[in-house]
């Protein structure tokens, strides 16, 4: 007859260590996929797409220094679906005829701006951020001027990308 486990402590210790090792392996095998599952968004690239904004000939008709809010719709792959992101491009023609493609996102915490024509300023409803018609901060907490959309002109049509020209903190769009 083999000795019972109580009488041979070394065998008991051996079993304990083996069980501990097996448990550790199982624990790691479970934890690693779970971490992958949770941390997955960190390894995903943002889907960057071009979308049509309008004809250059239409932009030429804009009055100088009168902002025009134009909706654009980005068809972006997100997770298991393709989503439509509705966004605003604020078109501002300056006095020399150049176009600015501003975002209507406040650079403070991302609330949508509106144009107050009586004050000639973009106002933010959240914390009182203020920008002038060329996107410079004129008051409130915003740390930097308005974001500008990446854009290109092809065959007289303007396209916009869901990406800002200068976006140091990689703010969501």
């Amino acid at each position: 007859m083999a000795k019972s486990s109580e009488e041979s402590p070394s065998r008991r210790t051996f079993m304990l260590i083996v069980i501990g090792l097996i448990s550790t392996v199982i624990g790691v095998a479970l934890t690693v996929p779970i971490l992958g599952d949770v941390l997955n968004p960190l390894f995903k690239k943002r889907d960057i797409v071009w979308t049509k904004l309008g004809k250059v000939s239409d932009l030429e008709k804009l009055k100088p220094l009168a902002p025009k809010f134009t909706p654009v719709y980005f068809r972006v792959k997100e997770g298991w679906s393709v989503n439509t992101l509705p966004r605003q491009v604020v078109l501002v023609k300056d006095v020399s005829g150049n176009f600015n493609f501003f975002s209507n996102q406040c650079t403070h915490l991302g609330c949508p701006l509106h144009w107050d024509s009586s004050r000639q300023e973009f106002l933010c409803p959240c914390h009182g951020g203020m920008f002038n018609v060329l996107g410079k901060v004129t008051g409130g907490p915003p740390p930097r001027p308005l974001y500008r959309w990446v854009h290109k002109i092809e065959n007289g049509t303007v396209f916009v990308q869901n990406k800002y020209v200068y976006n140091p903190n990689e703010r969501g769009i």
Binding site: V32, P33, I34, L35, G36, D37, L39, N40, F43, G79, W80, S81
Partner: peptide
């Protein structure tokens, strides 16, 4: 769609 996403696009999702 979401099951497919877990299986093919989530990191180690097919393992989980």
């Amino acid at each position: 769609n979401s099951t497919y996403f877990i299986k093919h696009h989530v990191l180690l999702g097919n393992v989980l």
